[in-house]
Design a protein around this nucleic acid. Structure first.
Length: 860
RNA sequence: GCCCAAGUGGCGGAAUGGUAGACGCAGGGGAUUCAAAAUCCCCCGCUGGUAACAGCGUGCGAGUUCGAGUCUCGCCUUGGGCACCA
């Protein structure tokens, strides 16, 4: 008997699938469709284990759905625009296009040996003119529909390199290449009106039954619907056009605790004041010398500048509050101005403490009486910030009951203020419009033209695509499109006069916001094809990383709506992803030592390490190394496992099986050499068992039924596992069933039947091995075409059950009873049980709980 | 800083509020072998005990329940996101 030869088997069956066109997606009315999609990769040039895991999961679903009678669409493409290609061009002098297409070819070549059931005829890259040209058409339709507009927005500006930086290119407030202090600079940029859909994107989350709850929660928080009061403070001594300052607050009930007014450094008043006041100008400039990310803003030291101006409290015109310019107030949210209530907001508390402002408590815990309020506050070193749902005692309230919840107090305060003519209750959202302009080359050109007489003019559709020019260089920083005269200079589509092209390109999130729709008709000469979109949409199962929980998925949901409005998607595709699954990362141990000369860590590759008794030793020196388990794979830590090396030594089936076996799909999985080795041994064993069964000439016997019963249980459990994304659970059952088969004394025919079924159940995970066994044991045609096995209900029923007996919640014995035995009969048997008699010692039980078929608990 | 998760043996993990540790790895013992590889069988949470068995045990601290890994509240640690990384 020969051995399990993965490389031979895998090449053979991949060829057979190709020749039979098994995975070509076809539209037909006779079968239901199923669209499974994994988030498409960025073409970095190498596939990594995370890809293997992600695509294997999708492949399990795709192959399973194929064998349950569906027309399956399982495509692959490339998220191919973006900064790394430009960075590579700057570093090595090549061209982003060459770099990208080379990487794609490289990665496609690495992906194919995995044996994924992908319809490669639909492949595209977002940097293909055929794709981004249709994206430009889509943009023009959205412009026409009023979904796109221009406004000013701030960017990270590197004053030395004279270029715009991405947030990740800003390190500690400095440009990553130049090291110059980054400035915030305003540019006119293009925006999608996603914020108009805030309410819709929020409420529709409720319809996404097959999305993880955590993703929906994150999106809901991101959209950030709030109810509050918007009102104006009248100013004292302020410039004329600023006699009132609008503020928005979600806690109007704390208005009597106000101690200052804070405005953003970008607030019109701040901008007006800095013109005549060098100190204010210096402060504002300092505030702007910071990256644009919210994280940086929040973590920065809170600073303010007293403008010397004041506002009058709306309830008491004699009460004046100082106006501060504060670095932590965003112009983008609310009105760019707030009132500070230090007693009940930790950030305001720290600000007030720093600048010696008054702290007026508005409420205290309901358990503290009114007289003890001041004493309570003086003993605290922080703001008192209870849950809004908690009832508190108001000592400086002005509306509603003395003791009420924050929620009730807010409602009462809004009603009172509206009655007094002090502002009105408004609903606001945190979600901002989506700025899509990028001052970069390697992206989809925004198809508009700037004309001196006509203004901003859309390019004509017949002139699309607006192609990226190839003759560009990256030897100087900045956007090459900006300095490419012959590309930039054009004629106005409206009046024909000399005009200039828009040199900004689109955010790469635009590319990935509609690729799922394009896959339904990747060669169409319009963005989508109505019949194909109608048939294939929606994506039935979308699979990807949790890191995309907010931005990519929210933008895609917005795009699906925009595409519906512009006639590119049907009504039913408003929510394009019926089910979402977020998979975990693949991790690997880091082997590390300290360099004695400088104390820096030194990282060792797995192949440099000997593992003995759970310890790691350097092969060369024999020194023991520190093991950091479950670390994210990273080139700099030398712990990246190359899928190609695994395929070369064990085969794709081993890589696929191991990626699914050890951890639940939503959690991280740690790649271990011993686990891969064990998987390979297991697959070899299955192969051997099948080969033995093929030659087994023994006749039917009384062991056959037991084996077939286990087979039906395996069918049931493995199928349930796949249906619920419990691939690790399915694999545990497959191990169990393999052990049963190995030990079975059943006859040859029963064993062959069991082995064929085992192959079918394994086929979504290890498709090549499954085909080989199927062929060996006389299965008809390809296993990929075979119908999924169905468990017979009669074979799953057990006659007797074992009931654990607990005494006071601790297991003290067990009882074997017929499955349907009446509760009273069970109670009798329990009370007669040795351990129970002993524990009761003649007394009657306090309580006797019988959960039929599960457990018995006796309380004594 | 804010939002969202996760935490169970030496390790990865299993467990509709109902026998904690399925399945796999590592480890130990044995069979087979001239020997090895491969394969097969057995043991394997911690503490005490020859054993039967007893006590403890799901990050920490409270709570609900006949019964909590699972539900509630408060912490700790790790990971993801924070709008120009993709």
């Amino acid at each position: 008997m020969s051995r399990y030869q993965a490389s031979e088997i895998e090449a053979k069956w991949q060829k057979a699938w190709d020749e039979a066109g098994v995975f070509t997606a076809t539209r037909s009315a006779d079968k239901p469709k199923y669209y499974v999609l994994e988030m498409f990769p960025y073409p970095s040039g190498r596939i990594h284990m995370g890809h293997v895991r992600n695509y294997t999961m999708g492949d399990v679903i795709a192959r399973y759905k194929l064998s349950t009678g569906h027309n399956v669409l399982h495509p692959m493409g490339w998220d191919a625009f973006g900064m790394p290609a430009e960075n590579a061009a700057m570093a090595t002098g090549g061209h982003p296009k060459t770099w990208t297409y080379n990487n794609i070819a490289e990665m496609r070549g690495q992906m194919k040996p995995l044996g994924l059931s992908i319809d490669w005829s639909r492949e595209f890259a977002t940097c293909d003119p055929e794709y981004y040209g249709q994206q430009q058409a889509l943009f023009l339709d959205m412009l026409d529909a009023g979904l796109v507009y221009r406004k000013n927005a701030v960017v990270n500006w590197d004053p030395v390199d004279m270029t715009v930086l991405a947030n990740e290119q800003v390190e500690n407030g400095r440009g990553w290449r130049s090291g110059a202090l980054v400035e915030r600079r305003e540019l006119t940029q293009w925006f999608f009106k996603i914020s108009e859909y805030s309410e819709e994107l929020l409420s529709a989350l409720d319809t996404l039954d097959n999305w993880p709850a955590k993703v929906k929660t994150m999106q809901a928080n991101w959209i950030g619907k709030s109810r509050g009061l918007q009102f104006a403070f009248s100013t004292v001594d302020a410039p004329e056009e600023f006699d009132r300052i609008e503020v928005y607050t979600t806690r109007p009930d704390t208005l009597m605790g106000a101690s200052f007014l804070g405005i953003s450094p970008d607030h019109p008043l701040a901008k007006a004041l800095e013109k005549d006041n060098p100190e204010i100008a210096a402060f504002c400039e300092d505030c702007r010398r910071m990256g644009t990310s919210e994280e940086e803003l929040e973590k920065a030291e809170k600073k303010g500048f007293n403008t010397g101006l004041r506002v009058r409290h709306p309830f008491d015109t004699a009460w004046e509050l100082p106006i501060y310019i504060a670095n932590f107030i965003l112009m983008d949210y609310g009105t760019g101005a707030i009132f500070g209530c230090p007693a009940h907001d930790q950030r305001d508390f720290e600000f007030a403490t720093k600048y010696g402002l008054t702290i007026n408590p508005v409420f205290v815990p309901a358990t503290v009486d009114a007289d003890g309020a001041d004493e309570y506050f003086h003993s605290e070193e922080s703001a008192y910030v209870p849950q809004k749902s908690e009832a508190v005692r108001f000592v400086r309230g002005y509306a509603g009951d003395e003791v009420q919840t924050g929620e009730a107090a807010i409602d009462a305060a809004i009603a009172f203020c509206e009655g007094q003519g002090v502002g009105q209750g408004v609903t606001k959202f945190r979600l901002r419009d989506w700025g899509l302009s990028r001052q970069r080359y390697w992206g989809c050109p925004i198809p508009v033209v700037h004309c001196d007489s006509c203004g901003v003019v859309p390019e004509k559709k017949e002139n699309l695509p607006v192609l990226l020019p190839d003759d560009v260089s990256f030897d100087v920083p900045g956007n090459p499109l900006d300095r490419h005269a012959t590309w930039r200079d054009c004629s106005c589509p409206t009046c024909g006069a000399a005009a200039k092209r828009e040199t900004d390109t689109m955010d790469t999130f635009v590319d990935s916001s509609w690729y799922f729709a394009r896959f339904t008709a990747p060669r169409a000469t319009t963005p989508t094809d109505a019949a194909d979109a109608e048939y294939w949409m929606n994506v039935d199962q979308y699979i990807g990383g949790i890191e995309h929980a907010i931005l990519h998925l929210l933008y895609s949901r917005f795009f699906a709506r925009a595409m519906q409005i512009t006639g590119h998607l049907p009504e039913k595709s408003k929510e394009p992803f019926n089910a979402l699954f977020t998979q975990g990362m693949v991790t690997h141990a880091i082997y590390k030592a300290e360099d004695p000369s400088n104390g820096r860590p030194v990282y060792f590759y797995p192949e440099q390490v000997d593992l003995r008794d759970g310890k790691a030793f350097c092969k060369e020196t024999g020194h023991e190394l520190e093991i950091v388990p479950s670390a994210k794979m990273s080139k700099s830590k030398n712990n990246v496992v190359d899928p190609l090396a695994i395929i070369a030594s064990y085969g794709a089936d081993t890589a696929r099986w191991f990626m699914l076996s050890d951890s639940p799909p939503e959690r991280d999985v740690e790649w271990t050499a011993s686990g891969a080795e064990a998987t390979f041994k297991h697959l070899s064993r299955v192969w051997r068992l099948a080969a033995e069964a093929a030659e087994d000439t023994s006749g039917a016997n009384d062991q056959d039924e037991a084996l077939l019963r286990e087979m039906h249980k395996a069918i049931h459990d493995v199928t349930a596992g796949i249906d619920s994304f419990g691939f690790n659970a399915s694999i545990a059952k497959l191990y169990g069933f393999t052990n049963t088969l190995a030990k079975s004394k059943a006859g040859g025919e029963a064993k062959r039947q069991a082995a064929r079924t085992l192959a079918q159940l394994m086929s979504p995970m290890t498709p090549h091995l499954a085909e080989e066994i199927w062929a060996l044991l006389g299965g008809e045609g390809l296993i990929a075409h075979a119908a999924w096995p169905v468990a017979e209900a009669a074979m799953l029923v057990e006659d007797t059950v074992t009931l654990p007996i607990q005494i006071n919640g601790k297991r003290r014995g067990e009882l074997s009873v017929p499955k349907d035995l009446a509760k009273e009969e069970v109670e009798k048997l329990v009370l007669a049980h040795e351990a129970v008699v002993k524990a009761l010692d003649g007394a009657a039980p306090k309580k006797l709980i019988v959960v039929p078929g599960r457990i018995v608990n006796v309380v004594v």
